[in-house]
Design a protein around this nucleic acid. Structure first.
Length: 470
RNA sequence: GGCGGCAUAGCCAAGUGGUAAGGCAGAGGUCUGCAACACCUUCAUCACCAGUUCAAAUCUGGUUGCCGCCUCCA
């Protein structure tokens, strides 16, 4: 049983899918006019993990993440760079998908692009007008917030109070200051589509309502995104979808907290962001993923180089354990499992049990990871040289299983070029061993340093020298 | 002005009524020519004040501090 904190009800609720063993999930995607920044990466990693966990439990997840590929910022940027918007957008979509792959994020079932979804969008707007939830003024269509009774239920806002502290531009033509745009006419030189109201393009909020409906149906299980989207974006989606369809839009709303930098929100508009690309290339994308999952998704998380360094070291401990086990396996004695090992094997499942408990409690990845570390300790203590093949294999399988659920360790895209072949490395190791025998430690250390400079770490074990690439 | 969140060791971070998980960093030790890996030992009474309770980091009230949303934003 999975418990999910639902923004709508402000409490943890047991997850009950609409269709048995299926999850319909929509995650708001990026507006593509830039490389995504490290803060953007948080929801992608978090909700990918949610998805993976559902899949681990045997659910079939229909996962939709959109690309917003028409928007003021995109148009401005394209003008700046003297490019077609389509060219700009294609580039950033490709790069964003590359980033996602580097983070070991599973491909969405559908990646709709707004510009390819205009028809359903126009259709939905028409329905809203027909039903009296929207009105047109000189080519612009607004959603009539007053007409939708539940407006504010997601963000817990009351229309009157919003007005009181409003800093929003009041367009005279709106019936109510909170009314928002569903369709707006083009300006000179902007991309546009034909509609009954004007040549123009959709407003931001309507896109997601329309795409969710098209790919997931009128009611979906989970709608997710960053906490800043609660208002107005998600609030407006609820209004649009429920007004148009007359049904509950989403049963569960999940929102991740922010990734901060210097304890301040990181955002494109504040300009205090780091791109995922630069952080990933510096520390490793697997470290980024591990780092993001090391705190609960609803807690704010601060970003800094020191914290990344610490995360890198922590992940290294898990990686070491995996490679130590693999090494132990190749050398393990093919003997009967010992009595003490049989006893220990009885303890093995408890890590997995606790891991699942943590995950099922609103996806507490931080807690779940702690059990991976406990399993690492267990493995390091018992499954080393001298342990039986069977025992070592069991421990290895168990560890690998938990790591995979979180998508933690993987080969990330561009592996550093290996300038030394295995044979060459063996050759150097032999040289070093010879030097050591001759008590020529200076020479031995020189070889070790040389290999290190070429990305190869040497480790002496009881059963010989082994190496690993870094 | 309205709404909401957070405050746990040097750092990161779980825990939400029964006397504080895990990780990073540090210290001491084992192993080692050295190093790396690993193991052992060591490192907090949970912002402050008051209250409820046999019992609170965990509930209630207050204080202080930080942050977010209300405007494009993950």
């Amino acid at each position: 049983m999975i418990k999910i904190y639902n923004t709508l009800t402000k409490q943890k609720e047991e997850f009950k899918p609409i269709e048995e063993n299926k999850v319909r999930m929509y995650v708001c995607g990026p507006t593509v006019y830039n490389l995504i920044h490290i803060g953007n990466a948080r929801p992608y990693i978090v909700f990918d993990t949610v998805r993976r966990y559902f899949e681990t439990l045997g659910y079939q997840v229909n996962y939709v993440q959109n690309f917003t590929d028409v928007d003021d910022k995109i148009i401005n940027k394209a003008n700046e760079e003297k490019k077609q918007t389509s060219e700009l957008v294609d580039y950033y979509i490709t790069e964003t998908l590359k980033d996602a792959e580097n983070l070991n994020i599973e491909k969405a079932t559908h990646h709709p692009r707004v510009t390819e979804e205009i028809e359903p969008i126009v259709c939905m707007i028409s329905t809203l007008i027909e039903k009296g939830f929207a009105y047109e003024v000189e080519g612009t269509v607004y959603f009539d917030t007053q007409s939708f009774e539940g407006y504010g239920k997601l963000s817990k806002k009351v229309l009157d109070e919003l007005e009181a502290g409003a800093r929003i531009q009041v367009a005279n033509e709106k019936k109510n200051p909170m009314d928002f745009v569903l369709w707006k006419p083009k300006k000179e030189g902007e991309p546009f589509w034909i509609s009954p109201w004007s040549d123009g393009r959709p407003g931001w909020h309507i896109e997601c309502s329309a795409m969710a409906k098209r790919y997931l149906g009128e009611t979906i299980d989970i709608h997710a995104g960053g906490e800043d989207l609660v208002f107005p974006h998600h609030e407006n989606e609820v209004a649009q979808s429920e007004a148009a369809n007359g049904k509950t839009f989403s049963n569960y709303w999940m929102h991740n907290s922010f990734l901060n930098i210097d304890n301040k929100k990181m955002s494109k508009s504040l300009g205090n962001f780091k791109t995922l690309r630069e952080v990933g290339d510096t520390f490793g994308y697997d470290v980024v993923r591990f780092f993001m999952l090391s705190a609960h998704y609803r807690s704010p998380l601060n970003f800094s180089g020191d914290l990344m360094e610490a995360a890198k070291n922590g992940l290294e401990r898990i990686k070491n354990c995996v490679s130590n086990l693999e090494y132990a396996l190749t050398n393990a004695a093919d003997v009967e499992i010992s009595e003490s090992e049989a006893e220990l094997l009885k303890e093995l499942p408890k890590y997995e049990v606790k891991f699942h408990e943590a995950m099922q409690d609103d996806f507490n990845t931080a807690d779940a990871i702690s059990f991976i570390f406990e399993l690492v300790k267990f493995a390091n203590t018992y499954a080393k040289e001298g342990a039986s093949q069977i025992f070592t294999q069991e421990v290895y399988n168990e560890l690998q299983k938990l790591i995979n659920i979180l998508g933690l360790i993987y080969e990330s895209g561009d592996e550093g070029t290996h300038n030394l072949s295995d044979e060459e490395i063996e050759e150097y190791i032999n040289q070093r061993t010879a030097a050591k025998k001759a008590k020529n430690f200076a020479e031995a250390d020189r070889v070790r340093e040389f290999l290190k400079d070429n990305g190869v770490l040497i480790e002496d074990t009881r059963e010989g020298v082994r190496f690993k690439r870094i």
